[in-house]
């Protein structure tokens, strides 16, 4: 699953969803993969204001990826002379091309671990948790 996805997901358990500790989920034993995709600069620009930047920073730190800027990059920082800037390209690589291929996602509230296999996270809960 591409890293962008994790900014929109929490623990699937109802008792966790309203708890701040359940977001973001924490990757564990994550195998990352780079999958090249065409860059859509407008998409990056539009999606940035919708991101919880603190959660993005937490995620990159936990994955051992290069640190993100302290604040969400502004529109001006995304383009130079009408072309996508290095910042925009880096964000595309991080959000859209970097994917957790396998591993686990751990809830910070209940500590339940969700498996990621072949790039897909599985949020089905065992029956005793539903």
């Amino acid at each position: 699953m591409k890293l962008l996805t994790l900014n929109f997901l929490t623990c699937a358990r109802k008792t966790c969803k309203s708890n701040a500790a359940a977001f973001p989920l924490h990757p564990k034993e994550a195998e990352l993969e780079q999958v090249e995709t065409d860059m859509n600069p407008l998409f990056i620009k539009n999606i940035l204001p919708r991101l919880d930047w603190e959660a993005m920073k937490t995620l990159t730190t936990e994955l051992g990826l290069p640190n993100l800027p302290a604040e969400t990059p502004s529109d001006e920082e995304l383009a130079t002379d009408g072309e996508p800037s290095q910042t925009a390209k880096d964000l595309h690589t991080l959000l859209m091309e970097t994917s957790i291929q396998s591993g686990k996602l751990v809830c910070g509230n209940c500590e339940h671990e969700y498996a990621v296999k072949e790039g897909i996270a599985n949020f089905l809960l065992p029956s005793h948790m539903v």
Partner: peptide, 12 residues
Amino acid sequence: VVADILDLPHRN
């Protein structure tokens, strides 16, 4: 993602 409609992991 794989999820059940009654237990969605999407943020509220």
